[in-house]
Amino acid sequence: MEPNLQVLREGDLDHGFAGLVRSYPGAGKILGCIQCGTCTGSCQLAQDMDYTPRRIIEMVRAGLKDEVLSSKAIWYCASCYSCTVRCPKDIKVTEVMYALRALSLRRRRSRSVGLSPVFYSTFSRLVNTLGKMYEAGLIVLVALRSNPFRLVKLAPVGGRMFFQGKLGLLPKRVAGRAEIQKMLAKTAALQAEALEARRSPGGGGVIDAAGDAGAHDGARLHGRAIPGSLETGVLP
């Protein structure tokens, strides 16, 4: 990892970023981070990351939104939860990584970090449509949406699994697909509502309870009481 000696100016920082991240499920406690590095020390992928998990948390708190959301680091998390069980401040680092990936996909900041965004979004679309995972379809669609040459590279593993009867060629579907669509539509509508409440002057609702926004977070970071464990919110 190259040392990052970039000089930061107040205007480069997004003071609402920490609040936005904290509004995601499980991400509420990041302000309590003591920068001990236990997460990084526990991470088997830290050596491959451009910013370590400890650093990512601090960058979120500082408001380095663009750097975080376009980082490679967030896509190296394997969701092993080692950091989460070891964090002395009960920060669910894995859930924070989920939130950052989701934000990165939403803001289309993830174009330059390789296959991961395509893989996760394709997985999600397949399941939202079929109700179940369709492994063969996932492999082919990810390749088509990224680099079709991948199919050649994956052929040996695919072939081995196919001949062991481990690669079903036809998709399986849930009967209640319409029901799932309604649930997902309602989820999206509730998230939009929460986002609207967050944007409107004075904020409100669910998101406010999670400890909203900007200057507010900055003030807390600069010595005022760090709020407790309000892990609410569902946005955006």
Partner: peptide
């Protein structure tokens, strides 16, 4: 009529 649990992939797209 169970559906996919989401694995670790769907939380990366939409944790909620």
């Amino acid at each position: 009529d169970w559906n996919c649990c989401g694995a670790t992939a769907i939380p990366s797209v939409d944790p909620t």
